[in-house]
């Protein structure tokens, strides 16, 4: 097959591939949250998309707080100090939201032994409530008397409009790869995502904590008999998923620069797709699924036109599941071996 002809030129092919990897890395980080919770509870945490969305706002808020509201265009190097603070803020914010979801939308139901379907509906409810709360943040700001300048930053009058980070991060070309200029932003996103995934993978495989999580995923009652605190393990999986989503939110804001109260939806669906494609419950599957999805949909957009991106993504999901019903890597978190 002549890739050059298909994509216009071979350079284009590379550029679409790397662009796809960048988004794929972000999908993968979000996908971890779905896959971890599924591995331990066999539940789809539908509200995980909001965990990500709150992280994106934390990033924009951090820049507004530390820089101000006037627009600026910075290099990655100049933005780095604030970006690191934003990363911490987003991870804390997303982790907090994830823990709230666990505490109020899941734990009471699990304690009562509610069917999985009920937990799913509870999560959908939590998802809408969280998204709408973000969309109504101007009202909340008004209620608590936040009427000064700060209120404008945090909650502009049209809270449902696109909300931008005042600081745009200008990518700089680092080197050429077959005619495509790889930028520092692209590289940082891919490297950061890979680093976090490898770190998490090692945590799950090598540490005592990870053994507790794997044991609970494989047999919760036996895990309790070994002295594993299952409530703590469930909390921990939500926490880890939240931290990863916060990191994804930071990378996303580096690349895209703006967000909305419904920004979680499409990314959540994509990340969930990536998790299912890779084999839900499987950490490495989430990584693989995310990268494959990101690259394939970008190729699809290149070949058929960008309006076909999502069509390609979901057709791909269906095709992969038809051939491999349990995803590309299949085996679950529970069966992950050391």
């Amino acid at each position: 097959m002549d890739l050059g002809a298909l994509f216009g030129s071979f350079d284009n092919f590379l550029s679409f591939t790397i662009g796809g990897l960048v988004f794929g890395a972000i999908y993968a980080l979000i996908a971890l949250g779905y896959t971890m919770v599924y591995g331990v509870l066999q539940l789809i945490n539908f509200a995980h998309s909001e965990v990500f969305m709150y992280g994106t706002f934390a990033v924009a808020w951090t820049f507004i707080f530390l820089h101000g509201t006037e627009s600026a265009s910075w290099s990655l190097g100049k933005a780095l100090p604030i970006l690191l603070v934003a990363l911490v803020a987003a991870m804390v914010m997303s982790a907090a939201i994830a823990l709230l979801i666990e505490r109020f939308a899941y734990r009471p139901l699990i304690k009562k032994g509610a069917p999985k379907l009920i937990a799913l509906i509870s999560a959908i409810g939590a998802s809408f409530a969280l998204a709408e709360a973000m969309g109504l943040r101007d009202r909340f700001a008004g209620w608590v008397g936040l009427k000064d300048d700060l209120a404008d930053y945090v909650a502009p009058d049209k809270a449902r409009d696109v909300f931008s980070n005042p600081v745009t991060i200008e990518p700089h070309k680092l080197f050429e790869l077959g005619g495509y200029g790889v930028t520092d932003v692209d590289l940082v996103i891919i490297a950061a995502a890979l680093l976090m995934m490898v770190g998490l993978d090692q945590l799950i495989r090598r540490t005592r904590l990870g053994r507790g999580i794997r044991a609970t995923a494989q047999d919760p009652e036996s895990a309790a008999l070994m002295g594993v605190n299952s409530t703590r393990v469930v909390q921990l999986t939500f926490l880890i998923g939240g931290l990863m989503a916060g990191a994804a939110a930071t990378l996303y804001m580096m690349k895209i620069g703006s967000t909305r109260q419904n920004a979680g939806f499409i990314l959540g669906v994509k990340a969930f797709t990536a998790a299912v494609m890779g084999g839900i419950g499987n950490l490495r599957g989430a990584l693989l699924g995310g990268l494959v999805l990101g690259v394939m949909e970008n190729w699809g957009a290149a070949v058929f036109g960008s309006e076909w991106r999502d069509v390609v993504a979901f057709v791909l999901l269906v095709l992969i599941l038809l051939v491999r019903p349990s995803g590309i890597l299949g085996e679950s978190l529970g069966k992950a071996r050391a």
Binding site: R208, R211, G212, R214, A215, Q218, D219, E221, S222, A223, L225, M226, G227, V228, E331, G334, K335, A336, R337, A338
Partner: peptide
């Protein structure tokens, strides 16, 4: 040692044994 054994199927024998010493 529970009814039906309740071993962790995806872990090795050694890992299973050390799960017993988890605390």
């Amino acid at each position: 040692s529970p009814e039906g054994r309740g071993i962790f199927p995806g872990m090795t024998v050694r890992e299973n044994l050390f799960m017993g010493a988890y605390t």
